[in-house]
């Protein structure tokens, strides 16, 4: 049996005296969607940040593609970061208002030293098309796009470095109903095509039932139950 894509054991996150995540453990396979559900303040987002090592956990292990992340230095983590990418709730807040969409999507390629002037622009156009955006939207800035279009741009940027895991923190909560369905469909298609693992944070029960293979319920930092939608 192969290793899971992500294996989290006994994760603890504290903010001063407050324990936000209290010994949380779960696994996630490639091609699988695991939803984290629970009320505001239950530790869902802190779990996500700790998985991504954007906030270092106080205790516990995070194994990603068979490598233990918690013992790595920031420098050692850097080559692994492209393989686990976040998508955040606020589609406008996750993109710089000053950058054109094209530059926002190119940025991770440049940061990873993978940019070259010959085929970089074509790669960006391909990514935009993959997420259902017209290539001309690359010339726009975030405020010229709708929330749904911005969220698609955020997903394009997350995909730029060919990740294996997307950590989606309320990715459709800020979107209108008629647009939300399109983004959920896009995420389903990308998962089918690329075999991505999704850690999907969401407090909308109907969305959770729709997207998740497994659901973990959290309350006050602890996992209270785990179930599978029909």
């Amino acid at each position: 049996m192969t290793d899971p894509l992500l294996d989290v054991r006994g994760l603890v996150v504290r903010y001063g005296p407050v324990t936000a995540v209290d010994h949380v453990s779960f696994t996630l396979d490639a091609g699988e969607t695991l939803a984290l559900d629970g009320p505001s303040g239950c530790g869902k987002s802190s779990t996500a940040l700790a998985v991504l090592q954007l906030r270092r956990p106080h205790a516990g292990r995070v194994r990603f593609e068979g490598r233990e992340l918690t013992s790595l230095t920031d420098r050692e983590l850097r080559p692994l970061r492209p393989r686990m990418q976040p998508v955040f709730q606020d589609p406008y807040g996750s993109l710089s208002p000053r950058h054109r969409i094209r530059d926002a999507v190119a940025e991770p390629l440049k940061a990873q030293g993978r940019w070259n002037a010959d085929d970089g622009p074509a790669r960006v156009a391909e990514l935009l098309e993959k997420v259902g955006l017209d290539p001309s939207s690359g010339d726009r800035r975030p405020h010229e796009l709708s929330g749904g279009q911005c969220q698609r741009a955020g997903i394009a940027r997350a995909l730029a470095c060919e990740p294996r895991l997307l950590v989606l923190d309320e990715p459709v909560s800020a979107l209108d109903a008629s647009v939300r369905a399109g983004v959920l469909n896009l995420l389903a298609d990308l998962q089918d095509e690329l075999g991505l693992g999704y850690l999907f944070i969401c407090h909308d029960r109907a969305v959770v039932r729709h997207v998740a293979d497994r659901v973990i319920e959290m309350r006050e930092g602890r996992i209270t139950s785990e179930w599978r939608p029909r």
Binding site: A181, L184, N185, A206, H210
Partner: peptide, 17 residues
């Protein structure tokens, strides 16, 4: 809208914005 009931992989989304 995602509904209770049998899961569908794709939702009938309205096109456009």
């Amino acid at each position: 809208l995602p509904q209770d009931g049998p899961r569908r992989r794709r939702l009938p989304a309205l096109t456009g914005t």
